[in-house]
Design a protein around this nucleic acid. Sequence first.
DNA 1: GACTGCATGTAACGAGTTACATGATTGG
DNA 2: CCAATCATGTAACTCGTTACATGCAGTC
Lengths: 203, 203
Amino acid sequence: MSLRYALLALLDAEPMTGYSIAKHFDQSAAYVWHAPHSQIYPELRRLEGEGLVEGAAEARGDRGSKTTYFLTEAGRAELRRWVAEPTQFPPVRDAAYLKATYLEYGDYANARSQFRAHIRHHEEMARRWDAHAADLANHETALLKLRFKEWPEEMHAAVVGYKVHAYRGLAQRARDEVAWARGGLELVERLEATRYGQASPRP
Amino acid sequence: MSLRYALLALLDAEPMTGYSIAKHFDQSAAYVWHAPHSQIYPELRRLEGEGLVEGAAEARGDRGSKTTYFLTEAGRAELRRWVAEPTQFPPVRDAAYLKATYLEYGDYANARSQFRAHIRHHEEMARRWDAHAADLANHETALLKLRFKEWPEEMHAAVVGYKVHAYRGLAQRARDEVAWARGGLELVERLEATRYGQASPRP
DNA sequence: GACTGCATGTAACGAGTTACATGATTGG
DNA sequence: CCAATCATGTAACTCGTTACATGCAGTC
C-alpha cells in the first residue's frame, strides 16, 4: 500500500510521466521504494480515478501518447494523511537470515561464499545510499531543488534534514549488514579451526 | 520462494502438523520467517506432491483428521541445494523509511510520534531476538535439542553457532533501528530549536 | 538503417493478507 | 457445558515479478 504514496510524494516535487517515475525507482539509490513500470502505470490510472493525481496527455506521433501526471490538492491532502497515520511494521521475512540460520546444511566454503556475497551486496548499497545522502546534504539533487520551490524557506532545513537522516540510516543499516557478515566469516573461521573433520554430512 | 525452505528446515528438526508450524511462525521471535496457516497448509500439500515431505494422516473424531508431515530424503537434498545456491537480495521497499523521508508533510509532534513508535517496535523486537539467541546459546530450546540428535557431535557447534549468529544479528539490527530513530528525535529537536515558526504548512 | 532511449501497455503467475468457516479435544 | 486450544481448510483480494509486446524520437 506504500507504492501510491511513493508516487504522490515524487509527483509533488515534479510532474512526471510513468516512464520517468520508473527510472527514479530503478536507480534504486535515489529511492526508498522499488517498483517496475508494470505496477506504476496502472497505479497512476487508479490514482487519477480517485482524483489524487491528474494526467495531462500529449500526442506522440500518430498513435503514441505520453501523459504527464501531477498532484492535485486532494493528492497532497492524502499525502499529509498518510504521514500522520501510524506506520505498520511488516512481519519479518528475510531470506538471507533464514539461510544463515541453516548453513550447517552446506560446507564451510559455502558458508563463506554466502557471507561474502552478503558483504559485496551491502557494501554496494552503502556506497549508493551514502552518495545520495551526500548529494542531498549538499543540495545537489535536481528533485530537492524543485522541492525547495514548493516550501517556504524556514521549512527547507526540515525538507532536506528528514531525507538526509533517512538515507544515512539506510547507509548505516547496510554497513551493519556488512559487519554482521564479517562476523559470520569469523564464526566460520572458528568453527573450522576446532574441527574434528570437515563439515561432516548428516549420518 | 523461501516459505518452502522454512518449512523443510523446521520439519527436519521434528515432524509436525501444519498447525504447530503456524504457531512457530507466529511467535515471531522463534523464527526468521512469518506465514499464516492459510499459506502453510497448501504449501505442505504442494511439497508432498513433489515428494519433499510426506504426511502421515491420523483420524481425529468422525470427520476430523490431523496430518503430521516429515521430511523425506529428497526434501533434505532440496534443503542442501537451497543452502548452496546464491541468495537473491530483494529490492528495497521500506514503508517506515519512505515515510521518514517525507515527514515535512506533518508537524514536529507527528515526526516525534513516528520515531517513538519506531523505537517501541524495534526495542520489542530486539528483546525477543536477544532472548531467543540466549536460549539457543544455552541449548535451551526444544527444537535445538532435537536437531542435535540428527547431527554428529562435531557438528553441534556449527548447528548452534549459525543460529546464534543469525538471531544476534537480528537483535543488533533492531537496536540499530532504535538508534536511528533516536537520531530522528534529535533531528526534530534541532529543527524545532531553529524554527522561525511551527512547521509551516505549504503556501 | 540500426541502435538507444523514451513511452506505454497487457497477461500470467506467485506470494501474502484477511476474512470466513468448520469441527475435535482437553480441562476446568 | 463452556472456553481455550488443536486442527484444517477456502475464497477473495492485493501486491509484486516476469515476460511479452508495441511504437516514437533522436543520432551515429
